[in-house]
């Protein structure tokens, strides 16, 4: 592994329309680092991933991914998008999804050399062998998520960007997916950047968190950022961070006007579901 950081952000800011999503985002993410991106709905978490994917330009500042300006189609980056699910009869198997990760972007009738072996290895690595040949639309959310991770990893990227990969998974599957990502970054030195609403499943593994709230940004180790004082100033209102055994519960993180599909900020308190 080279010594240059996997991701560098320098005073990065992003506006959509006339709205400032976040600014002054400065950090270097090293190879093999595991970073969680937290924040309420609409804070710009997915948008940050889009910037790193080269799909959106920054409004201010600079970004580097694997030492280069973010570029669409970069082989250095693997991407697991915010979960949508597939049609039941899509006409594709799990294996086909992973195969697209190898050469789906290539034109012409010939597939990449050694494709089958790489796909097989990626499927085995995420433990999806048993169901890789079933129609993708008929797999459970957790099974689909493993195959998506295999698809993102089959290209052997140095940076992995995951958008809410734990969404709608039960506790067991959440742990499975997080352990998978953790093993990958330890064994292959892949930097993992993961958007999540569920902090507790990732807490034992992440090195740092990026917390985005209404234009403000907090970056640091989980213990430094997830404190009552830090989150209170971030949200601009009183927020209590409670530690119950090895879990964290955030109370009072009232969010700005946000989307309806909010699934963890309860109507009154906005707490992390301590599932």
């Amino acid at each position: 592994m080279s010594q240059r950081p996997a991701i560098q952000l320098d005073h990065a800011a992003l506006r959509r329309g006339d709205r400032l999503l976040w600014r002054d985002l400065t950090l270097d993410i090293e190879a093999g680092e595991f970073v969680a991106i937290l924040g309420p709905n609409g804070a710009g978490k997915s948008t940050l991933l889009k910037v790193l994917l080269g799909l959106l330009p920054l409004s201010e500042g600079h970004a580097l991914v694997a030492g280069k300006a973010p570029r669409r189609g970069s082989a250095e980056v693997g991407y697991v998008p915010q979960q949508k699910g597939f049609d039941t009869d899509l006409g594709a198997r799990g294996r086909d999804l992973v195969t697209l990760g190898v050469d789906g972007h290539r034109f012409g009738p010939l597939g990449a050399a050694g494709r089958a072996a790489r796909v097989e290895a990626a499927i085995t690595a995420v433990g999806a062998k048993a169901y890789a040949d079933r129609p993708i639309g008929r797999l459970s959310g957790g099974e689909q998520q493993r195959l998506r991770i295999a698809q993102a990893l089959v290209g052997d990227p140095s940076v992995l960007l995951c958008d809410e990969p734990l969404l709608s998974l039960d506790l067991n599957h959440q742990r499975g997916v997080v352990e998978l990502l953790d093993r990958r970054r330890r064994e292959a030195g892949t930097a993992v950047l993961m958007v999540t609403h569920e902090i507790n499943p990732v807490l034992p593994y992440v090195n740092r968190v990026i917390y985005l709230v209404d234009g403000r940004v907090a970056v640091g180790k989980p213990d430094e950022v997830l404190t009552s004082a830090r989150l209170s100033s971030l949200y601009g209102t009183r927020v209590d961070v409670l530690r119950v055994r090895d879990r964290i519960v955030v109370l009072g993180a009232e969010t700005e006007p946000h989307h309806d599909h909010d699934h963890f900020h309860d109507s009154d308190a906005g707490e992390w579901h301590a599932q």
Partner: peptide, 20 residues
């Protein structure tokens, strides 16, 4: 000629776009 990228963008448009 376009079979593979067209299939990619048909079944998995977000990742296809990110992959260029």
């Amino acid at each position: 000629v376009v079979y593979r990228p067209l299939f990619f963008s048909s079944v998995d448009p977000e990742v296809a776009e990110a992959r260029g």
